[in-house]
Computed example of a mutant assay.
Amino acid sequence: MTEPAACRVLLVEDHPIFLEGLMAAIGADHGFSVVAAAGTADEAVAATRTHAPDLVVMDLGLPGRSGIEAIREVLAAHPEVHVLVMTMSEDDDSLLAAMRAGARGYLLKGASRDEILRALHTVAGGGAVFSPQLAGRIGVLFASVRGTTAAAAFPTLTAREREVLDLLASGLGYGQIARSLFLAEKTVRNHVGSVFAKLRVHDRAEAVVRARDAGLGTVPRPAGQADVQLPPAAT
């Protein structure tokens, strides 16, 4: 039987020693083939066009334009490519910017070879992967962004009304919302009625559509990603 073709990998990294180690780690897995390396955002864009990789491993701290800009430009021209960030940056702004740009994973440098290969396989397969140090902050981070977006979308709603609308859009019934918020069910119904009036909608279905358009009702996850996997901490 013919063996499946190896996943074509482009490495974007400007530190020669780290790049050498990364190439050695990936070279140990026959499921991957490093087709090119780049040291800047512009080189990454050009190499993607020339070598048609399936997977790009992207550093963020590149000379000149950042890795975030490179991710945006690469995916705008080649949306089928999967991007895994591998960086020293563990701040929330970098994590959120990378996910918004379209990265499917975020791994900190210093990960073990096994962690790196596991992350590569996960992202190449359409999944999402994050370093254990960052995983616990992802839900809170996206929830914060979602709340800010919802407040801008529904400025006439109170914070409690947005909370009720969020749970309503998540598929919860009035009784479930009441238990979740420690309210009487009648109070929840009153909030829902107020939401309907302020949004000028006639029923729950219409309210849910408006809510989901504003990002409520689901915990955000980068588009197109499968289950999130977390590599175990290195021992």
Rank of each mutant, 00 (worst) to 15 (best):
R200L: 10
L55S: 09
L19A: 15
V201Q: 03
A159N: 09
V81Q: 04
E80D: 06
A37R: 11
T158Y: 09
G171R: 01
P53G: 05
A197E: 15
V228Q: 15
R146M: 02
G125T: 00
V123K: 13
P220C: 08
L157H: 07
Q229W: 00
S180A: 06
L11F: 00
A205M: 06
I177N: 03
V188D: 10
R113W: 14
A128G: 14
L230M: 11
M99V: 08
A77V: 00
S33Y: 14
A28M: 02
A153K: 10
K198W: 08
E185C: 04
D59F: 08
R212A: 02
D59V: 08
A226F: 07
G125S: 05
L11Y: 00
N190D: 03
G171D: 00
E90Y: 04
Q225H: 10
L172C: 05
V164D: 11
A111I: 02
A46S: 13
T48G: 15
L120N: 08
A143H: 09
G21N: 09
T187Q: 13
A111T: 08
D42A: 10
S112W: 09
R160L: 05
F142C: 06
S144L: 14
M23Y: 14
T50I: 09
V34L: 02
T122D: 04
A226K: 15
Q225G: 13
S33T: 13
C7K: 10
K186L: 12
T2E: 02
V57T: 04
T187C: 03
G27L: 03
F182W: 11
D29R: 02
A153T: 09
L199H: 14
D227E: 03
T148N: 02
G27H: 06
A5E: 11
L230G: 02
A103L: 08
R72V: 09
E185K: 12
V35Y: 07
V12P: 05
G175H: 14
F154N: 05
V45F: 12
P4G: 05
L167Q: 12
P155N: 03
V195P: 04
A111H: 06
V12M: 09
E3D: 15
A70C: 10
A111L: 03
A6E: 09
A38I: 12
R221K: 14
I17V: 13
K109L: 10
